[in-house]
C-alpha cells in the first residue's frame, strides 16, 4: 500500500466515524424513553410486563422464545453439519472437524473422568447442556427482536436469564442425576440423590444469578447514552463470552460430578 493510499484510507475512516457521531448526537432526544432504568431492570428480572404470544398456546416470557430460537439455530447447524460435513470426515482432521471432535471429546471426557463406571448417557447430556448454555448466552448478543402482546419491540434475552429457564435446566439436570442414581444403585441411589435436595435450587439459581447479572449490567450500560461508546465492547462481548464459557463448564461439571457420585456402585461389606 502506497503512502497516498494510506492517507486516503485514514481520511475515509475519520469521515465515516465523524458522520456516525454526528448522526448519534443529532438523533439523541428524538425518542423519549418510555421506561425508567428501574423499570427496565425490574422487568429484566421479573418479566412481568413484556410477554410474547407463543403460537397461541400461552403468553410467555421472551426467554421461552429465545430458548426455542436457540434450539432452532442449533438444529439447523447440526443438520447442516450432519449432511455436509460429517460424511466428509477424514482420519487426519481439518480445522472444522477438529473443532467438532474437540467439542464432543471435551464433554465425553468430562463424563468419563467424573463417572468412570456409567457415562454414555451422561456424555450426551452434558454435551447438550454445555452447547445449550454456551449458545443461549451468546444468543443475547445477536439482538433478535420480538413483538410483545402490548405491541412493543423487545430484544430477545438469554433464555437462562429467565428464572423459569434456569429452574428448568437445573431441575432437569437434577432429574438426570437422580436417574443415574436409580440405574446405578436402585433405592440407595435415590437416597443418595435426595440427600442433596438443595442441588436443583443451587444449580438453578447459580445459572439465573450469573446470566441475570450479565443481562442487568448490559441493560444498565445500554440505557445511558454516555456509556454507549467503547464500553459495550468489553461488557457486551467479552463478558458475555466469558460467562458463557464459565457457566457451561460449571453446570456440566457439577452434573457429571454428582452423577458419578450417586451412580457409583456401592462396595459390598464383607
Amino acid at each position: 500500500m502506497s503512502k497516498n493510499q494510506k492517507i486516503r484510507s485514514i481520511i475515509i475512516f475519520f469521515v465515516i466515524g465523524a458522520l456516525l457521531l454526528a448522526g448519534i448526537i443529532l438523533t439523541n432526544g428524538m425518542y423519549q424513553k418510555e421506561e425508567t432504568v428501574q423499570e427496565v431492570m425490574l422487568d429484566a428480572v421479573l418479566h412481568e410486563k413484556a410477554k410474547i404470544n407463543f403460537f397461541g398456546i400461552a403468553e410467555v416470557n421472551p426467554g421461552v422464545v429465545s430458548a426455542f430460537g436457540v434450539t432452532a439455530i442449533l438444529f439447523v447447524f447440526a443438520l447442516a453439519v450432519r449432511i455436509f460435513v460429517i460424511p466428509k470426515f477424514t482420519l487426519i482432521p481439518g480445522k472444522f472437524q477438529l473443532l467438532l471432535e474437540q467439542g464432543v471429546g471435551l464433554f465425553d471426557g468430562l463424563a468419563k473422568s467424573n463417572s468412570p463406571h456409567r457415562n454414555k448417557f451422561l456424555g450426551a447430556y452434558v454435551f447438550t447442556a454445555g452447547a445449550y448454555i454456551f449458545m443461549s448466552t451468546m444468543f443475547e448478543m445477536l439482538g433478535f427482536q420480538a413483538v410483545t402482546t402490548e405491541g412493543m419491540s423487545v430484544s430477545l434475552p438469554a433464555p437462562l436469564s429467565d428464572i423459569n429457564g434456569a429452574i428448568g435446566l437445573g431441575v432437569l439436570s437434577y432429574l438426570i442425576i437422580l436417574s443415574g442414581g436409580i440405574v446405578g444403585n436402585g433405592f440407595k441411589g435415590i437416597g443418595n440423590t435426595l440427600k442433596d435436595f438443595s442441588l436443583p435450587i443451587s444449580m438453578s439459581f447459580r445459572l439465573f444469578g450469573a446470566l441475570l447479572s450479565g443481562a442487568l449490567v448490559t441493560e444498565l450500560v445500554y440505557y445511558f447514552f454516555s456509556l454507549s461508546f467503547v464500553l459495550p465492547v468489553f461488557v457486551g462481548v467479552l463478558f458475555t463470552l466469558l460467562h458463557a464459557v464459565i457457566q457451561a463448564y460449571v453446570l456440566t461439571m457439577l452434573t457429571a460430578l454428582f452423577y458419578g457420585e450417586v451412580s457409583e456402585p456401592s462396595k459390598k461389606k464383607k
Partner: peptide
C-alpha cells in the same frame, strides 16, 4: 408451564444434538 416448556425445549435439543451431532 414455562418451566415445562423450557424442559421440553432442552429435551428436544438433546434428541436433535444426540442424533445429528454427538
Amino acid at each position: 408451564q414455562q418451566i415445562l416448556l423450557h424442559i421440553f425445549n432442552t429435551f428436544l435439543l438433546f434428541v436433535i444434538l444426540y442424533f445429528l451431532l454427538y
